[in-house]
């Protein structure tokens, strides 16, 4: 067996040539660990992310909106499931990942620690939060780990309606009554900066970034993705007559991009540390669902075991049925 140094060099060359790594391949331990952390975090984000939107299903203001929101939240559950499955190919288990989340050992995207206060938040979350997520996800379709990239392709296909749904809500509100327009602007004001923070701090602040890029896990830098998102989204806001809450936002002809104001990273780190408005509620909700579901899961397992035993017994003694 080749010494580890050679294997790592060969691995780097392999991924640099845009090959896919599959579950049975050799991979550096750090690569495996990074992926387990990143994929499970992504999965947790989808699951926790169901909560701020599920919050409005019972108050959706039209039957069509109710259906669309319910379908969207259900999709997010499905995406979490695909991602947990991808992570499981790396040797962890769904239960382990969920335990880590509930114990506060695993992270999820901090954007979901903000409250959804009005119906317009459904618009803002779909438009901005899903919009930012899509930016990241399209990039991940080309990530080096096969199961992760295939899960992302599947997710991206389903994601297309999510952002459209959010923008449609914002558009309808912006063109509605004075109160509706104010509701939309207020939601944009509250969700804009947290959405920019979703891409994470500048890569020079993040020690893992360079390694993730070399392994082709990450394909673009945080700053690049954030800039792409801003450039794409500002015209969308202008189109519906809403204003981005950034006095420093300005098109820079020379750069060919929007200049934008300084992000308050203290808020980001405070929320990541657990002090955002809804951190406690989100985790509590997930812990509660899991704990209250234990007896259900146990019952299903117990029944499956009983059925298996019955089948075995029936197979072992087929002639007994003739004995009177």
């Amino acid at each position: 067996m080749a010494p580890t140094v050679d294997l790592e060099a060969r691995f780097l060359a392999y991924v640099a040539a845009e090959n896919k790594v599959e579950p049975k391949h050799w991979m550096p331990d750090a690569y495996r660990k990074t992926l387990v952390r990143q994929i499970s975090q992504h999965a947790h984000s989808e699951i926790v992310g169901m909560l701020p939107e599920a919050n409005w299903i019972t108050r959706a203001p039209s039957l069509r909106a109710k259906l669309i929101l319910l379908a969207k939240v259900q999709d997010e559950g499905g995406h979490g499931l695909y991602l947990y499955s991808a992570a499981e190919t790396l040797g962890t288990s769904r239960d382990q990942m969920i335990d880590d989340l509930h114990a506060g050992k695993a992270k999820y995207s901090s954007i979901f620690n903000y409250p959804t206060l009005t119906w317009a938040d459904m618009g803002a979350v779909g438009w901005l939060v899903d919009g930012a997520a899509i930016q990241n996800q399209v990039m991940l379709c080309r990530t080096s780990y096969g199961p992760y990239s295939r899960a992302m392709v599947r997710i991206c296909k389903e994601e297309s309606f999510h952002q459209r749904q959010g923008y449609e809500i914002m558009m309808q509100l912006a063109r509605g009554t004075q109160e509706q327009k104010a509701m939309a602007q207020d939601a944009l004001n509250r969700w804009w900066w947290p959405s920019l923070m979703m891409f994470g701090p500048s890569d020079d602040q993040s020690p893992n970034s360079a390694q993730s890029m070399a392994w082709r896990i990450k394909r673009k830098s945080n700053d690049e993705l954030r800039q792409e998102f801003i450039d794409k989204t500002v015209p969308q806001a202008e189109f519906i007559g809403l204003s981005i809450p950034d006095p420093d936002l300005k098109w820079n002809e020379e750069r060919g991009h929007y200049d934008f104001g300084a992000i308050d990273w203290r808020e980001f780190f405070a929320v990541v540390a657990g002090n955002g408005p809804c951190n406690t509620e989100r985790l509590e909700a997930r812990r509660k669902a899991h704990a209250e579901g234990a007896w259900v899961r146990e019952a299903a397992s117990a029944y499956a075991a009983k059925q298996a035993a019955r089948r075995q017994a029936a197979a072992a003694a087929p002639s007994k049925s003739h004995a009177a």
Partner: peptide
């Protein structure tokens, strides 16, 4: 729909 996000396991949700 009130169960959404609170089901006993993801598949059942």
């Amino acid at each position: 729909s009130e169960w959404c996000g609170h089901g006993p396991i993801l598949e059942e949700d």
